[in-house]
Write a protein that binds this DNA or RNA. Sequence first.
DNA 1: GTGATTTACTTAGACTAGTTAATCATTACT
DNA 2: AGTAATGATTAACTAGTCTAAGTAAATCAC
Lengths: 350, 350
Amino acid sequence: MAVTIKDVAKLADVAPSTVSRVIANNPRISEKTKKRVREAMEQLGYHPNFIARSLANQSTKVIGLVLPPSSGAFFQNPFFAEVMHGLSDGVHEKHYALQMTTGTTEEELYDGVVQMVQGGRVDGIILLYSRVNDDILSYLRSRCFPFVMIGKPFEHVEKITHVDNDNFLAAKEATEYLIGLGHKHIGFIGGSPSLTVTLDRLQGYQNALREENISLQEDYIIHSEHFLREDGQEAVNKLFSTSVSPTALIVTDDLMALGVVNSLTEMAIDIPNEVSIISFNNALFAEMSRPPLTSININIVELGYQAARSLIQILENENEPVKRIIIPHQLVVRNSCAIAQETLLKDSSN
Amino acid sequence: MAVTIKDVAKLADVAPSTVSRVIANNPRISEKTKKRVREAMEQLGYHPNFIARSLANQSTKVIGLVLPPSSGAFFQNPFFAEVMHGLSDGVHEKHYALQMTTGTTEEELYDGVVQMVQGGRVDGIILLYSRVNDDILSYLRSRCFPFVMIGKPFEHVEKITHVDNDNFLAAKEATEYLIGLGHKHIGFIGGSPSLTVTLDRLQGYQNALREENISLQEDYIIHSEHFLREDGQEAVNKLFSTSVSPTALIVTDDLMALGVVNSLTEMAIDIPNEVSIISFNNALFAEMSRPPLTSININIVELGYQAARSLIQILENENEPVKRIIIPHQLVVRNSCAIAQETLLKDSSN
DNA sequence: GTGATTTACTTAGACTAGTTAATCATTACT
DNA sequence: AGTAATGATTAACTAGTCTAAGTAAATCAC
């Protein structure tokens, strides 16, 4: 068995509780005793047992991570690596650890969270997604368990601390950008409509169209379950079998956009001359795609970093107010968007 | 405070120890009592406290992850997401959790591991890298703490359970492939020479050249610290300032290869006609690069999965023998390699 | 100079929430 | 009645924290 506080106490000839106080650097212990105890700790190579400490303190210094339901797909998206980067930085700064549980089914996932929470494994939780009617969210709220969410809560926005982008605005700007290029037939390819990101971006898109008096067409809106390349391909098949094909597309994820580009290229549809594409996340391969994708950088690393920080603030201060942190986004213009052909034709006829 | 075992005991009118036995499904408790206790548990919404359990059992059901020293760069490489995917699957199967600590400096990292180990936070550790003279490795070995390594240990290969590819063979095959295309001037761009992956692949490369009686040129070998795109660009600058530029390159990571492709394209050097490139890992963007990269798929997800499984085996069976698990690799041919021009010239002169 | 009070440390022991070896109380069967 | 089998309990143990209490020294009053 490892060295315990009692061994140290014996060697330093003090009570275990004194050793505990020395560890906590309690001012009520004299410097002389502290020194003696520290020497004993050094000599024995003592390291406090975190588990025992957690039990006594009712605090583990561990933060739990809840991945979205279909985590298999989630791992494949660069979003995962980037949030993890930010989370890791934020958590590490304050000497917390990160813990992950995944589940294959919804139920497993839920049970995993209950285990984490009721089992006292973690002090707080970060939800890496936001969707409608989420049981896990309801559970955390009902238990008043500290958590923060990455994304905008579907309900109770003002009661849940969350870190998000202004996805409505981002999508609106993207759409306006396309409209500015003369596009009137703009399609929207989004992820699952149960995710709030998707809904926000969809609304931003619709709002921009409405403001410019462009009629909304139901069949220009496609939703795919995951954010994968295959989803993009599938979406294209649906979109380009409509009567009037769109001349521009908003795709809510680079990975999906990649699939879209692939499919269009196979169909010998030229990007950007026949179809313009604008996507979200600005992952590395937005730059690498042929053509390079115009994409909206949502600063994913920062999203993670701020989420970690705000959760820790909640944990360390009972009365921390509910916060909403909006991470800025930027449109990164590359070569996947061009002036609409109709506009060109019109102009040249003048 | 949450519901404890005592509350359940009181309600079911038994001793706390009986409840504990019911949880463990001990056969010495009658079915009648078990049922009564389970009902009480249900009624109170009882969930055992994992921390208290961990303390009593001296086991946490948590596996620690040690990222390589410069984790900032590591997060950016798709390797990270893929191993995590595999690890997560493997760990989840056996109801373990994953815990991560990172450090900014070497010392912080080391301290983090000591905390994990001596603090009893984790039952075992997975090292996501392998390098020469690693203090963390020595520490784990000296404490006889259960761990497995992803990659080949630099020393004591037969004493450390590890999951790896046959990197020597993979690099050798890659080199032979290039030689088969008529290349005689083949450069090697690798990551840090303190990593065993790099060393193994370098040896495979050198071995192939030697067997074909092609002289080894020191200045055809470049090492970069991280596996990043910038590193690839830097490497190209060095390589193509030599007297005779190579006509083919082995690059030990897709991300670096990407940088190489970028630089060469900027220098108006044609790939594959002027320079052939073969890279490792077969990340998504190997496929997306212009031209698509011929790459060696090392099955990273499987690497993680097997590492998780073998660690858990060690944890659950004291006498589990040391294992070496080799994950197969495949050469994925795309369009970044062509027949050497010298060969073409020779052929046409016939 | 002596007793009272204050101050500065230190400690015993209860507590965190479980597990488990050893023990005890029943009942059942020779 | 004696013994074995079964089922449940007592109490010690995991490694810490922390409150309340204790002690010794220092300060103060007279």
